[in-house]
């Protein structure tokens, strides 16, 4: 059964500008791998080389971050929505020390 996948703006150009795609799969990992297989431009942006979730991406099933469920093994059903969003982080950190301007 296909699952609705909500794409972030950064990935939409790889999917012809679509916001939402229906993708087959029974687990988060299967859905994401099928997504990347269909849109190879997303390769390396969602799943890393080892098949784990990319470090700078958050994946949600409905309202829940899958890292707090079973990660890529989290089961998904036809009524679920899978949302992909970039992890947003940064900070001044060493900004006071050196800048390239």
């Amino acid at each position: 059964m296909p699952v609705q996948v909500n794409l972030p703006t950064v990935l939409r150009p790889h999917a012809g500008g679509e916001r939402t795609i229906a993708v087959e799969g029974e687990t988060v990992g299967q859905v994401l791998n099928a997504l990347v297989a269909r849109y190879p431009g997303m390769s390396g942006q969602v799943i890393d080389d080892t098949g784990a979730l990319h470090k700078f991406v958050n994946i949600y099933i409905n309202d829940d971050d899958v890292r707090y469920l079973s990660g890529v093994d989290t089961p998904v059903g036809a009524t679920d929505e899978l949302s992909i969003l970039p992890a947003v982080a940064g900070g001044a950190f060493a900004a006071g020390v050196h800048h390239q301007r």
Partner: peptide, 30 residues
């Protein structure tokens, strides 16, 4: 609408992106 950007504060430094900010900027449209 869409999410069009992100904001954050620098408490003791200027309003300029740090290397950390640049390394972790995920979306060129933001």
């Amino acid at each position: 609408n869409s999410i069009i950007g992100v904001f954050h504060s620098h408490t003791h430094t200027e309003a300029y992106p740090s290397p950390t900010d640049v390394a972790q900027a995920p979306d060129p449209s933001w």
